[in-house]
Structure formats: structure tokens, C-alpha cells
């Protein structure tokens, strides 16, 4: 397995105030890494550092195997702005190609076709011209996932993708993510719901007071020794 992202004793934080120290882990092609930790443990700081939105304070982050930092497609948690944003599903999915545009003002025909392809892949082709703000939570997540796929199909970073979804929508979402993983996309998922994650993850990164990184099996053995989940 070729490593795509390596964190080597990285310190994360805002404004030079460290939140997490000595984080070491790596992600290889085809992995399904789950990052878990309590609220306030630094999950979103880690995510923003990974995406390059904030700089790391110390240590090295290496991207290899032909992966660049901008090859990480990302499924954000919804922002308040998006709740009343007048935009059609198609417009939003298409905007995922923006990183390939450079200074080119308009999208190419091929990009438009690919956007439709991704919409079909996510099973939302009947919603193509619908308004984003009128969709259900699960449907909105699929739209954003289709957009992320337009930006890249190498690595997807998902920030609590099932937050606020009902049981069925949640199940569908997990299955969709699994099918993407099976077709070769590396998945990095941030979650606090360990029981759900266990079924799908190949690797676990636990952050907080104690930091652990390893395969799912190592993690389960480790936490058993400690008497319950860490």
C-alpha cells in the first residue's frame, strides 16, 4: 500500500496556541480512516490543518504517491449561509470543478457532463434542478458529496457526514461512502459515533487526552486491554 498522507509528530493549533501535540499517523490508498474524539478534542483543527486552511505549528506533513494537498475533496458540515442559499443542485455540484478552472471563466462541456455523472452516481438525478435549501438533510449531503467528487476522487474527507440525519438516511449515507471506498477512493471520516464507524473503518485515529493510531483490530485490542473504549 502506498502512503498518500503522512503526519510526522505534528503539532496543531490556532494562533500559535497548540491544541494537539505529537500527532503521527499515515493514510494509504484505499484506506478508510476514522478520526474519533470527544467534542473539543481538536477534530476540526486537525481537519483544517489537513486541508491547509490553517498552518501546522510544528512537525511535518507529507503528501506522496502523486497526491497533493488540494486533492482532498471535502464534505463540510453545513454552514448557516447555506441554509437560505438560492442555488440549484446542478450549480452546486458543478462548482466542485472550480479548482480545475484556474483563470478560465466558464466550465467546459466535459466538466458539465462529469457533474451530471456524479449526480447520477449519488442517486439524486431527479433533484438536479431543485433548490438546495429545500432538500432534506440526507439529500443535501449527497449533493455536497457529488461536489466533492468533482473536485477529486482520490481522497475524501468527511466531517461528521451523518450528523442530523435520521436512521435510514444515515444507513444510506454509510453505504454510499463504503461503495466509494471500494471503488478506490481513500476515505477519512471524522466521527464521534464509534459503534457505527467500527463496521466500516480500516484504521482508527483517536485523539484527545490519549492519542492512538492503528488498524481497527489494533485499536479494539488496545481498548480492551484498557478496559473499555479509550
Amino acid at each position: 500500500m502506498k502512503k498518500q498522507i503522512t503526519f510526522d509528530r505534528v503539532t496543531l493549533g490556532y494562533d500559535r496556541k497548540p491544541i494537539l501535540q505529537d500527532i503521527t499517523f499515515s493514510v494509504s490508498k484505499g484506506d478508510y480512516l476514522c478520526i474519533i474524539g470527544e467534542n473539543g478534542s481538536g477534530k476540526s483543527t486537525l481537519m483544517k490543518t489537513l486541508l491547509g486552511l490553517i498552518p501546522e505549528l510544528d512537525g511535518d506533513i507529507t503528501f506522496s504517491d502523486g497526491v497533493k494537498r488540494t486533492d482532498i475533496g471535502y464534505l463540510p458540515q453545513q454552514t448557516p449561509v447555506q441554509k437560505d442559499f438560492p442555488a440549484s443542485v446542478y450549480e452546486i455540484v458543478l462548482s466542485g470543478f472550480q479548482n480545475k478552472c484556474g483563470l478560465r471563466p466558464f466550465y467546459t462541456k466535459k466538466e458539465k457532463e462529469n457533474a451530471i455523472q456524479n449526480i447520477i452516481k449519488m442517486g439524486i438525478s431527479d433533484l438536479k434542478d431543485k433548490c438546495f435549501r429545500e432538500l432534506s438533510g440526507g439529500q443535501q449531503q449527497r449533493v455536497l458529496l457529488a461536489r466533492a467528487l468533482c473536485a477529486t476522487d482520490k481522497i475524501l474527507l468527511l466531517d461528521e457526514p451523518v450528523a442530523g440525519l435520521d436512521f435510514n438516511a444515515m444507513k444510506d449515507m454509510y453505504e454510499l461512502i463504503e461503495s466509494l471506498n471500494k471503488s478506490g477512493t481513500t476515505i477519512i471520516m471524522i466521527s464521534h459515533d464509534l459503534s457505527e464507524v467500527e463496521k466500516y473503518a480500516s484504521h482508527i485515529l483517536h485523539i484527545g487526552k490519549s492519542v492512538f493510531f492503528g488498524t481497527k483490530r489494533e485499536y479494539l485490542e488496545h481498548s480492551e486491554k484498557k478496559g473499555g473504549l479509550i
Binding site: L51, G52, L53, K68, R69, T70, I72, G73, Y74, P76, T79, V81, Q82, F85, A87, E91, I92, L94, S95, G96, Q98, N99, C101, P105, F106, Y107, R147, A148, A151, T152
Partner: peptide
């Protein structure tokens, strides 16, 4: 000229930035 970029930026600036815009 910048219409599509303005849209991407308005809808989700972090996503655009993270993917290299």
C-alpha cells in the same frame, strides 16, 4: 468573467480554498 468563481466562493469558501482555488 468571475461569475462561477464568485458563486463557489459565496457558497463555500473553505471548500474552494481546500481544493486549491
Amino acid at each position: 468573467f468571475f461569475y462561477n468563481k464568485i458563486f463557489a466562493l459565496t457558497f463555500d469558501e473553505n471548500f474552494a480554498k481546500a481544493t486549491g482555488v
